[in-house]
């Protein structure tokens, strides 16, 4: 049963983080749009998936909201020059899509890894 969770973690956390890092660091010949936003999209998806996996694929709205507010807040702080970097509304759009994607796919992965999650939903 632990294997199911390991597969879920690998597929929805480790793989997107790794793919994002490869695109960001190594892909020199890709469009700047993909290079700028695709890694962010994958990392945001991985973080949203982390929360979903921690809560055994039950949608915990409060923690997902905290995560989303942290991501959007970081962009706003960049825009206001409170933290280093360039605030970008496209990043916020990308985060929204990734978070929505993770929640949308949640039912599918919950069903796929049901055996594990149905055995571990006790409070």
């Amino acid at each position: 049963m632990k294997l199911f969770k390991t597969k879920d973690v690998f597929l929805n956390i480790a793989l997107p983080v790794l793919a994002g890092a490869i695109i960001y660091l190594l892909a020199a010949d890709v469009s700047p749009f993909i290079k700028n936003y695709f890694p962010d999209a994958l990392w945001a998806y991985a973080f949203a998936s982390s929360i979903l996996i921690i809560w055994h694929r039950e949608v915990n709205v409060a923690w997902l909201a905290v995560m989303f507010v942290a991501a959007v807040g970081f962009e706003i702080f960049q825009y206001k020059h409170i933290v280093p970097g360039t605030g970008d509304w496209w990043d916020i759009a990308v985060y929204s899509l990734s978070f929505s994607g993770a929640v949308f796919l949640n039912q599918y992965f919950k069903h796929t890894f049901q055996k594990h999650y149905s055995c571990n939903t006790n409070p």
Binding site: F47, I54, W63, V66, M67, A70, A71, V83, P84, G85
Partner: peptide, 21 residues
């Protein structure tokens, strides 16, 4: 689970702050 969720958010913030700009 709450502790793990808080750690995930903290990790996100640390990575975002530590990323090279």
């Amino acid at each position: 689970k709450n502790t793990l969720s808080a750690c995930t958010v903290a990790l996100f913030i640390l990575l975002a702050l530590g990323s090279k700009v």
